[in-house]
């Protein structure tokens, strides 16, 4: 049975720190390595800042769901408003970053709103 933790923040840069803190605490529970925790931070920064940059009207909230299951972490982030159609949500650059810091990445884009889910393992088998 997977444990779920949901963090909902105002969509502004300073609050992303809160999501990062929650992420490191959960990752530590799962015994992630330091490297993996840093990867997790990079992924969270990237996804949240893209949601803020591309939603129109600007999202007022971002909801990040952490799913802890069998020692691994699945993170889903979404804003609460539709995405702009004139700019890309995840640019090639963002995707390149996200793919290199996560084990898998899924972007679900429907009805103008998007949700990003990524998944990380703990980094090593000790």
């Amino acid at each position: 049975m997977a444990d779920l933790v949901i963090v909902r923040i105002p969509a502004s840069t300073p609050h992303i720190g809160l999501v990062r803190s929650a992420a490191s605490a959960l990752a530590a529970l799962l015994d992630f390595t330091y490297d993996r925790i840093q990867d997790l931070h990079i992924a969270i920064d990237e996804v949240c800042s893209r949601i803020m940059a591309t939603s129109q009207p600007p999202s007022s909230r971002i909801e990040v769901t952490f799913q802890l299951d069998r020692g691994e972490l699945t993170v889903t982030a979404r804003g609460d408003t539709p995405l702009r159609t004139d700019v890309q949500f995840l640019t090639k650059w963002s995707q390149a970053i996200l793919r290199s810091v996560t084990d898998s990445l899924e972007i679900i884009d429907s009805d103008g709103s998007a949700r990003v889910t990524f998944h990380l393992g703990r980094g090593v088998s000790v």
Partner: peptide, 20 residues
């Protein structure tokens, strides 16, 4: 390899919460 938070805490003589 990269250490876990628990390993860092132990080596630094601090709690995991402090390390985080």
């Amino acid at each position: 390899r990269s250490p876990t938070v628990a390993e860092i805490a132990q080596a630094a003589g601090a709690t995991e919460d402090e390390v985080l």
